[in-house]
Design a protein around this nucleic acid. Structure first.
Length: 560
RNA sequence: UGGGGAGUCGCCAAGUGGUAAGGCACUGGAUUUUGAUUCCAGCAUACGUAGGUUCGAUCCCUACCUCCCCAGCCA
């Protein structure tokens, strides 16, 4: 029985039905099977959350299995990174860390068995010749002249392939299925190839390596996986998955069920490995963990929390329909998490000097700012006030737009946690740029006093005392692309980059922020959620990344 | 034009032969010292199209349309 009530989906329906029918004796075992040939991205998070989530909900287990059958493209560096990402997302594979390469011996033995059964043969044709005879989508392929090679001869050849007697490409092992099948995958697929190359785990023990279609189903079966979840493009591989296991009924412990779901498509980003590599290698982004990338390393550095990613995956659901999820859904999941968990701080991103004319020159006083508006137990911190302060440029308009209720000449606004002030003058330089604004304050309106209750003003802005501020580098990130679908069709995605996806500024920050630890998240009041960068934050010298802005219904009004 | 899939509100996504869950977005309104949050209310006579079966169809049947995937010794 599921541990908690969750939204139904077609995969859970299948499992529920299996449980009712007693197909697996109530056992649910899944696996996340990445090939260690690159970095994980948010699309993988869907598979991870799905596999681990289902296993958890049905009191089952989920394995982490590296599908490392192609040593040409794989590296230990990637398995380390993948393990780290999965753990970061909050999942635990326990003792179930596996590698397809763990099964090379068994896979080999099964291959000899298939040959002996007349279900596989050694092919002498070259890759090109095989392709020529494969037929097309609408016409059948033709049998290889080697298809009926005697079992003993195939066996001998296969053993010599393994022994290293032949160069790459000389022979392959093919499953003997049906060259006229309308399903291309069934036209005698290659299941072993010769590759004289060092494998990151098995070293030089092997020079023949099994192919995905042959390996995956057997690995699933060996691990006694019950439900093997994969993406839609493997739908027409399923007959092959089943065929292999059917040949091996007497040799493997079970026959897992492959179930396919639609992969995640996210707007305003690219997810394809090739394009990500290009972005990284051409320097268009700052490495694999660039906060604008949808790699797991990137979103983590951007400030996304594991919880927000899990929430996101839960929110988008799972089905077999191709779909596009708007990044705003992801962003909103982060806000939902951080609104609860992030302490508030005051930061002035784009400063404008404000002088309180009637405030005593050398006076300073403490104002108390709660660390969270809804959590008094988080207590308050002191934010000092003095005659000269900085406010956000956006919080002043010399000629206020309709509906604008922040500061403008003659207007009143509350300095958050302090006094109500009124704008009385504007200083400009020779060029006409505003250099500072002057206000007077109403000494009877300090926040927390009785006087504060007597007057209400609509505008409420944040500020920082000029003589008490610290400074910090802040990186304002925005979407990497201006086009919602940069990854589709034959678009030249590099021309669709958002030139303003990264803006680096030096902001005024309240002093408590200079002690921020790498990875700590904050809400900069009225601005957004920021994280102290994991790698660039140094003791006493934080660097902040903007993960996401706050919702802003004023901006929504003005941008229309 | 072969085979395999998919089409339910702006975006996701449940669901059943008996008269369309939910989330997000959106729109009102309340609260609010974040134009944030929270709260409350509203939001598909309609399930790709056209026929048919039925007392009744989004769900069954037929035809059609659109989109996605497949011709690696990649996974």
């Amino acid at each position: 029985m599921p541990n908690e009530v969750v939204v139904s989906n077609f995969i859970r329906s299948i499992i529920d039905e299996d449980n009712r029918a007693g197909k697996w004796g109530q056992r649910v075992e899944t696996r996340f099977p990445p090939e260690p040939n690159g970095y994980l991205h948010i699309g993988h998070a869907k598979s991870i959350c799905l596999n681990f989530g289902i296993a958890h909900d049905y009191n089952g287990v989920c394995h982490l299995r590296f599908d490392d059958t192609n040593p040409e493209k794989e590296a230990q560096e990637y398995v380390d990174a993948i393990c780290e990402n999965v753990a970061w997302l909050g999942f635990d594979w326990g003792q179930n860390l596996h590698y397809s390469s763990d099964y090379f011996d068994q896979l080999y033995a099964f291959a000899e068995y298939l040959i002996a059964q007349g279900k596989a043969y050694v092919e002498s044709l070259s890759a090109d010749e095989i392709r020529e005879r494969r037929g097309t989508l609408t016409s059948p392929g033709q049998n290889s002249p080697y298809r009926d090679r005697p079992v003993d001869e195939s066996l001998d050849l296969f053993r010599r392939m393994k022994a290293g007697e032949f160069p790459d490409g000389k022979y392959v092992l093919r499953a003997k299925i049906d060259m006229s099948s309308p399903n291309m995958n069934m036209r005698d697929p290659v299941i072993y190839r010769i590759r004289h190359i060092h494998h990151q785990r098995t070293g030089d023990k092997w020079c023949i390596y099994p192919m995905y279609d042959y390996t995956h189903c057997i690995s699933d079966a060996i691990e006694r996986i019950t439900h093997s979840l994969c993406t839609l493009e493997f739908e027409d591989h399923r007959p092959l998955y089943d065929w292999v296991l059917d040949q091996l009924v007497d040799n493997v412990p079970c026959h897992p069920q492959q179930i396919e779901f639609a992969r995640l498509n996210l707007t305003y980003t690219v997810m394809s490995k090739r394009k990500m590599i290009e972005l990284v290698e051409s320097g268009l982004v700052d490495g694999w963990d660039d906060p604008r990338l949808s790699t797991l390393a990137g979103v983590r550095r951007r400030g996304y929390t594991p919880k927000s990613i899990r929430q996101f995956i839960e929110r988008i659901g799972v089905s077999k329909a191709d779909s596009w999820i708007d990044v705003s859904v992801l962003e909103d999941c982060l806000r939902e998490d951080l609104n609860e968990s992030a302490p508030r701080r005051v930061v002035v991103l784009k400063p404008l000097k404000l002088i309180i004319d009637n405030y005593p020159e050398d006076q300073e006083e403490d104002c108390f700012a709660p660390n969270h508006p809804k959590k008094p137990e988080w207590e308050s911190r002191i934010v000092p006030l003095s005659k000269t302060i900085y406010i956000e440029r956006d919080d002043f308009m010399e000629e206020p737009a309709k509906g604008y209720f922040r500061l403008s000449p003659g207007a009143e606004v509350r300095l958050r946690y302090a006094y109500i002030v009124k704008c009385v003058a504007v200083d400009k330089n020779a060029a006409g740029d505003i250099e500072a604004i002057h206000c007077t304050y109403d000494a009877d309106t300090k926040s927390g006093t009785e006087g504060a209750k007597k007057r209400k003003v609509k505008g409420n802005i944040h500020w920082l005392s000029a003589k008490h501020v610290g400074q910090a580098e802040v990186r304002l990130y925005d979407r990497l692309f201006v086009d919602p679908y940069p990854d589709t069709g034959d678009k030249d995605y590099k021309t669709l980059l958002n030139p303003e996806s990264k803006e680096v500024i030096v902001a005024y920050v309240e002093q408590s922020l200079s002690h921020a630890e790498p990875g700590q998240s904050f809400q900069f009041e009225r601005n957004g959620y920021f994280i102290a960068d994991h790698t660039d934050t140094k003791p006493g010298k934080p660097v902040f990344n903007r993960a996401v802005t706050l919702r802003d219904s004023w901006e929504k009004i003005t941008s229309v």
